[in-house]
Write a protein that binds this DNA or RNA. Structure first.
Length: 442
RNA sequence: GCGGGGAUGGCCCAGUGGUACGGCGGCAGCCUGCUAAGCUGUUUCUCUUCGAGAGCGAGGGUUCGAAUCCCUCUCCCCGCGCCA
């Protein structure tokens, strides 16, 4: 949720932020109408309650003095009736106003480019040495502003879909029968490689000051709605039938909610948490996209980074999260580019977001493997996560970033490190000690 | 699932129908060679010019008035049962 006081004080900030996101100004206009009415009603109700409290106290004194309180009681009853009707109206207006308020998006950071469309997300940097099939060179260079480094290869590597089929590493057909599309059985060494990735990611973050947790995989409506936004609710989340429970779509949400309604001591900050969990997503808006293989699936595993920090420092910590994620991707030998999200593509919670997109030579393009967001105080305000300062209690800033989303990284490994014949996959060096093998073959 | 106990401000804790006690911690000030101690004030949210309202796990109810009485629910602790 945004800061209502700031909205009242500096509405122009929100009008320009909403405009940059491509939201109309209707939402804000509606808010101000309702808020004005709400404040009027609140004043009325509070004044009436004051009156009632005074009368009650008078009764208290009169009882002690042994006087007849019946007439005063009648006054209180009348006042109470008035309060009841005014308060009912207040609650209606308040609910309407809050409904609007929840939809007002976070203020965007100054450094966010004003644009729209995923394809326009500006390129930030490239790292690595990509293997690029001849006819993809042009697209590769365009995607990296001409600065991407690459080796031209004279064959197109197999897609992970074909490769995993050929090497017997994934069983999609059985998963389709047992569960449905976008499910999978990971088998043998590919499964062990996933465990290696998880352990590697957890150790990596643990070494960098993150406390590691495995969160609950389900959340109730109240916590979930505060940790996320309606878009996620509508498009991503699975609900458990007959229970007030939703499967998490990322450990970001239960980690964020971990310290809801708490007031942290300043020395607790920054609080770095790394979580590991399966993630469940409906992918309702993705019909027809990545329908084969394990690139886009209904459940996958993910190591996630999360930071709670002081507001002034969140920009720096956003860079730290990106740096950690980059180092992980680099260490696996993958080449990638970083993009800065367009104002028009940010989620309601985001103030700023970077994506890391790895190069997939078989597809001839960069695909998202990491998403690093600064949600500033938006999530913290909804979840009521504050810290103590000499100037009162303030909301922390929250940030999150993918460390390793296992299925996507496995796809990247399969598509980047297969041999020319498509009979063997080389295991990235840092994973070898975790996996206990250095190649995967049939 | 059954029985018993519990939830009060950042933390601890008192409070059996008359408008939340005290301590610790935090912050500010005073005092003091320095530190510590001591003293004073302050400490949540909302609307505000003053000021007021709300707040005792959540939601209802009774009452002129509820932390207190009644109902429903949630979570935690102890015991029993079941169980990977």
């Amino acid at each position: 949720m945004i800061d209502v006081k700031l909205l009242r004080e500096k509405p122009e900030l929100f009008y320009s932020s909403c405009e940059a996101r491509g939201f109309g100004k209707d939402l804000l206009d509606k808010f101000f109408i309702l808020d004005r009415k709400w404040r009027e009603l609140l004043k009325q109700v509070n004044d009436l309650k004051h009156e009632k409290n005074e009368l009650s106290m008078r009764i208290s004194r009169m009882v002690k003095e042994g006087k007849d309180v019946a007439p005063v009681k009648e006054d209180v009853v009348k006042t109470s009736a008035l309060i009841e009707s005014n308060e009912a109206e207040l609650k209606i207006v308040e609910a309407e106003r809050d409904q609007i308020l929840k939809q007002i998006p976070n203020l965007i950071d100054e450094s966010v480019p004003i644009c729209k469309g995923d394809e326009n997300n500006p390129f930030m940097k490239f790292n690595g040495m990509a293997s690029v099939y001849g006819e993809d060179v042009e697209a590769f260079l365009k995607a990296t502003n001409g600065v991407g480094k690459y080796n031209v290869i004279d064959y197109r590597p197999m897609s992970h879909v074909d490769l995993q089929e050929k090497l017997g590493l994934v069983d999609l057909e059985t998963a389709g029968r047992v569960a449905g599309s976008r499910f999978y059985y990971l088998k043998g060494r590919l499964f062990k490689l996933e465990l290696a990735l998880i352990n590697y990611g957890v150790d990596f973050l643990s070494d960098r000051g993150f406390n590691v947790v495995e969160p609950p995989l389900m959340m109730n409506y109240e916590s979930m709605s505060k940790a996320t936004d309606m878009e996620t609710f509508r498009e991503s989340l699975y609900k458990i039938e007959g229970e007030d429970l939703y499967l998490i779509s990322t450990s970001e949400h239960p980690i964020a909610a971990m310290i809801s309604n708490e007031i942290l001591a300043p020395q607790d900050l920054p609080l770095r948490i790394a979580g590991f969990s399966p993630c469940f997503r409906k992918e309702a808006g993705a019909h027809g996209k990545d329908t084969k293989g394990i690139f886009r699936v209904h459940n996958f595993n993910k190591v996630e980074q999360f930071i709670f920090c002081e507001p002034e420092k969140s920009r720096d910590f956003h860079e730290e999260l990106l740096r950690n994620s980059e180092q992980l991707i680099q260490s696996l030998g993958l080449s990638y580019r970083v993009i800065n999200f367009c104002s028009g593509e940010l989620s309601v919670l985001n103030s700023k977001k970077y994506d890391i997109e790895a190069w997939f030579p078989s597809q001839g393009r960069f695909r998202e493997v990491v998403s690093a967001s600064n949600n500033t105080d938006y999530q913290a305000r909804s979840l009521n996560i504050r810290y103590r300062t000499s100037d009162g209690h303030k909301f922390v800033h929250t940030l999150n970033s993918t460390a390793l989303a296992t299925t996507r990284i496995l796809v990247a490994i399969m598509e980047n490190f297969q041999n020319r014949e498509g009979t063997e996959i080389k295991v990235p060096e840092p994973l070898v000690p975790y996996a206990g093998f250095d190649t995967i073959s049939s």
